[in-house]
Design a protein around this nucleic acid. Structure first.
Lengths: 171, 171
DNA sequence: CACGGATGTTTCGTGTACGAAATATTCGCG
DNA sequence: CGCGAATATTTCGTACACGAAACATCCGTG
């Protein structure tokens, strides 16, 4: 594990983590409830709106978009195909690739549904002032950069090299 | 319904939602990897550290703490009990209640593990300046308030934000 | 004391979610 | 041309995660 940092944990950190978890899980739960009104699950709603917006997508680009593994998306598409919401179409140029396409029923449903995934979170955000929004995005982006560098710097898990260049920042 | 999206969508909103999703899911994934080094899953790591910190907990207070349903926690505890990490102890005063207690093995493991759940996210946060932390928490708390009021079914004196969807739930 | 409702936990069915291995196909390079 | 590496998808096994229903126990009121 990364060199354990001194336990001078600031009180805000716990609260922030708690709040992020709350916002994420609760928004997800509410989205799920909304999706259920159309006979869909949360991920299915996400897929339908994504395909409506972007058109046909290969399974792997779809999974990249929704940040899930291919194997997970295979299952989601299986069930959606079973419900007649999407169709699988083998690419003619590269027969390894499968494109996912909304069926008529899927397109109809997509038009009926006016909400985006994580809608509650989005609508809460739009109520913030512009400066709050900008500041929030700026700080979150900083955080993301640090996490990204952590992810990419951790490719080799060869224990015993605690010099993981922890300070990265650019002008 | 030609216009699928309301025009009031600010560009920052999408980016913020994306980033929050990234931070949450990626931190979760990394925590999972850390837990795996001890032969645990992510939720199991959370439970062990929680029990170490707070002592025995009933199943329902445990599920409240980790924001999961009782039925979910039942499964987690089942598997942890199977691994000999925790024990179930029926309360003597109220025999409906089950207390979850760390076994010797569980306590030993808890002491070995130095990381908190969502550790990567936490450590990225502690690197922020104090003013960034405070501002972040302030804005997130605002957001949480709005989501909470949504959850509780009342948009009390909001700034005239129209509701996107109608859900019915008990008061 | 009894009974009906409230509370705590488990069971059940379905749907994610992941990683590793299997399968299918394409491509690079000699 | 051919073969092994690379890429795309599926299969498999396990672990969440949720809601509804079943089950167990407690409690208040008559």
């Amino acid at each position: 594990m990364a060199a354990s940092l001194p336990p001078d944990t600031k009180p805000e950190v716990d609260a922030i983590v708690e709040t992020i978890i709350y916002l994420y899980t609760e928004s997800r739960r509410l989205t799920k409830g909304l999706a259920a009104q159309f006979g869909l699950t949360g991920p299915q709603l996400t897929v339908i709106k994504l395909l409506q917006e972007l058109g046909d997508l290969s399974l792997s680009s779809l999974s990249e978009r929704i940040r899930a593994q291919n194997s997970t998306v295979t299952g989601i598409i299986d069930r959606m195909e079973r419900e007649g919401l999407v169709k699988r179409e083998r690419s003619t140029t590269d027969r390894r690739v499968v494109y996912i396409r909304l069926s008529e029923k899927g397109q109809k449903l997509a038009r009926e549904i006016q909400v985006e995934p994580m809608e509650i979170f989005r609508s809460a955000l739009t109520d913030l002032s512009q400066s709050d929004l900008e500041h929030l995005l700026r700080v979150l982006t900083k955080l993301q950069k640090r996490v990204v560098s952590h992810v990419e710097g951790r490719v080799s898990e060869a224990q015993g090299a605690p010099r993981a260049g922890e300070e990265e920042d650019k002008p």
